[in-house]
Write a protein that binds this DNA or RNA. Structure first.
Lengths: 177, 177
DNA sequence: AAAATTACGTCAATAGTGCTGACATAATTT
DNA sequence: AAATTATGTCAGCACTATTGACGTAATTTT
């Protein structure tokens, strides 16, 4: 019994740094940034008994009023069952309403109520504040650049999901490439 | 029974856009970017029966070999219990080893094994590739700018966690403010 | 030296989010 | 009429996270 079950690999004492050209710095920053980015709304959501999933649904229902359940599933990349509970809670608490689709009556178009819009705004406010502060801190005027970078981080096939958003209609035209 | 239980708020049909100066565009892009950023390693992890939590532990153990359990908890911002299972699995599978702290023998210093380092690299590779591609797509040369922005997104009190990383020792000095 | 604190491990119970698979219903399409 | 589609729901399971409690060993304080 002098040695343990597996060969018990020896400890490596040197930090991984930017070995092999891997960009650990940005990988790690992305983790930290997202961790804190979500922490603000998480605290508000807790007061409502909601979680991050509720936030995401609320966000997209407000951004694209009238989207259907199937479209929402596609954007969130989760399963029907995962959405079901969360959506039901939002409907039961009068944050979201369902309307029968005008053309296809099988579809349920999702709309925020005034209550749902107010909550979406309350959740977005601290996040937007954080973004504004970060843009200032990091030598602003680069908003478009940050936007393009984040967009480029998204899977190319899925960028279509982004281009649906209404912001693009307000004459920004920072990229219809 | 002409009306439902609650006043049943009316549907709002207009998109939330950038109402009240809220930066919904970047909020949403951050969600999409992070969703896809984590999807690459998630697939690899599935082969090992690991999840995202394993990745995070593996990442930081490789980035700061010798960190203690308490330090890791502080960085990940999770509870001891949440870490316990994940860490145990990584130790049992010989990805991470614990050494008794040299000064304080209560502490357990965490180190990656060769196996653990290899996995950390394998997980980081697609992420780094995605970052490189995004920097190119979005008119690169702005790496430092992106880095500063992400850093500024982190809670100021917690930025100390970032400044520990070894990358800063390699003479980059883009900010010891 | 005794007492308090600290670092860590573990146990129990619970919540939130996600998954797969199966099945039902209503509406639309073929 | 039959097949397909959009949605809802049920059962069961996995992973990550939570709080609270307790135990042990080591260090620090008194």
């Amino acid at each position: 019994m002098t040695d343990r079950s597996p060969p018990a690999g020896k400890p490596i004492r040197t930090a991984i740094a930017d070995e092999d050209g891997i960009d650990f710095a940005i990988i790690e920053l992305f983790f930290f940034a997202y961790r804190d980015f979500t922490s603000d709304p998480d605290q508000i959501l807790a007061d409502y008994g909601f979680g991050r999933a509720h936030h995401r649904v609320l966000h997209f229902v407000n951004r694209r009023p009238g989207l259907t359940v199937a479209e929402l599933l596609d954007v969130l990349k989760i399963t029907k069952q995962s959405l079901a509970r969360v959506l039901k809670q939002l409907i039961d608490t009068d944050h979201v309403v369902q309307l029968q689709g005008p053309r296809d009556r099988r579809q349920r178009e999702l709309y925020p109520t005034a209550k749902g819009r107010a909550l979406a705004l309350a959740l977005a406010r601290p996040q937007s504040r954080r973004i504004r502060a970060a843009l200032e801190d990091s030598g602003a005027s680069e908003r478009a650049l940050i936007e393009r970078f984040l967009e480029a981080m998204v899977d190319p096939e899925l960028r279509a999901q982004i281009d649906i958003v209404p912001a693009k209609m307000s004459g920004k035209s920072h990229g219809d490439h």
